[in-house]
Computed example of a mutant assay.
Amino acid sequence: MFSPEPGAMGVDDDTPIALLAFDHRERNFSSVRPTGMTDDEIRRSKELIFDAFEVVVEGGLHGVRPGIIVDEEFGAPLARRAVESGIAVAMPVEKASQDVFTFEYGDAFREHLREFRPAFAKALVRYRVTDPADHRRIQRERLRELSDFVAGEPIALMLELIVGQRADGPDAIPTVDVDGLCASMAELQDAGVHVDVWKVEGTSSQEDAAQIVAQARLADANARCVVLGAGAPRDTVSRWLDVSAATPGYGGFAIGRSIWGESIVAWLDGTRRREQAIEEIASTCRRWAQQYVGERIR
C-alpha cells in the first residue's frame, strides 16, 4: 500500500478527496471554446484555474481533502508549487487523444514521475473487452509496467478507465455501462495491474455504484473509486456526486471542465473579469465538495 511522504495524501485515508482536474492537453482543453485556444491561452487559463483552487484551499473545506490533476506540458510550474505546498497532485502519464494507451514520455515516464513526486500517477485508458485483442494486450502490458513501477515508489496509481455511457431514455441521467466497466476492470486486475484509485464515469444508480466498488475491491480491499465529470451538464454531475457520496467505497470526485469550462471561455472572450472567473470556479468546486460531504454523512 502506498505510503505518502509528509504532507501528501494517502489512499488509505478515509477522508474523501475533491480533485480539480485540469490536466487536459491542447485538443481536449480547448474543446470547451468553439474558437479554440492558443498554447499561451491554455497556460494562462490553467494559471487562473490554479488561482481558483488556492482560493478554495485558503477558504477551507470541511470533511474533504482538496487536490489537483495537472499535466507537465502546460502546468509544470503549478504542479511543483502544489507539491512543495503539500497539496495532493495527480499527474497524467498518458499521451493525449490516443486510442491505445501510450506513455507521454516513453520509457522516461519513470524519470518524469520521480522529478515531480506527485501523490498519484494518473493514467487514462479507453478499454473495453470488445476492443481488438492486440489493443487490449498492449494496454495491459503497459499498465502493468506502470503499476509495477509505482509499487516501489511513494506514488499511488489512479486509473481513469473510460468505457462509455448510456441513457435509458430521452430524459434519463446518463450512466456508465456498468457491466462493461466491471468486465474491463476484471481483465486489468487479472493482468496484475494494481490500481489504488479507479477514476470512473458516473452512474445514477447506487446499486450500480456498489457493483463498481465490489469489482474494484476484488483485487484490493483498500482500493476506492472517484467519480469524474466527463464535461457533463451540472445537473448530471450533481446526480453522479450524490450517488457516489452515498456509496461506501467511493472516496470523492475528480472533475474538470464541468467546473471551469464556462468561466474560462467567458474570461477569454472578455465577458468575465479574471477575478469573477476565479470566484465562479472556486464557488462551484467548493459547492460540490460540500454537497459530496453532506450526502455522505446523511
Results as ranks from 00 to 15, higher is better:
R65G: 00
K199Q: 03
D168Q: 06
I264K: 04
R114I: 01
L157I: 05
I49F: 13
T15S: 06
S238K: 13
V129A: 08
A90E: 05
T236V: 15
D208F: 05
R117D: 02
R272E: 14
L218C: 06
E295A: 13
V226L: 07
A18R: 10
L181D: 13
E73Q: 12
E58M: 04
E41G: 05
R140M: 15
K46A: 07
D220F: 01
R128N: 04
R272I: 00
A108N: 05
D39Q: 13
E279F: 04
V57K: 13
I138N: 00
E94R: 13
P34T: 10
A108T: 03
E47G: 04
L113A: 12
G59Q: 05
A90Q: 02
P233C: 07
A119W: 03
E111D: 15
A108C: 00
S258Q: 11
I255F: 13
V83K: 01
T284F: 12
S204T: 00
S263A: 15
V195R: 11
A172H: 04
E201K: 11
V178A: 07
R224Y: 14
G180P: 11
Q189F: 01
G164T: 09
T15Q: 07
P174C: 07
T236E: 11
E207M: 08
R217V: 09
D23E: 11
G270Q: 04
D99H: 07
L48H: 07
E73W: 01
C182M: 09
C182N: 14
V293F: 10
D196N: 15
G192W: 02
R287M: 10
T284H: 12
P233V: 04
A191C: 06
V150H: 03
R44G: 01
A151E: 14
V195H: 14
E26K: 08
E115K: 15
H112R: 15
D208G: 09
A52Y: 04
A221S: 15
R224Q: 13
E207N: 08
I17P: 00
L146R: 09
G261H: 05
T35V: 10
I255P: 12
Q139Y: 08
I162A: 09
P233R: 06
F149N: 11
G36F: 11
V176T: 15
R27H: 03
R287Q: 13
W198C: 03
F120R: 09
A90N: 00
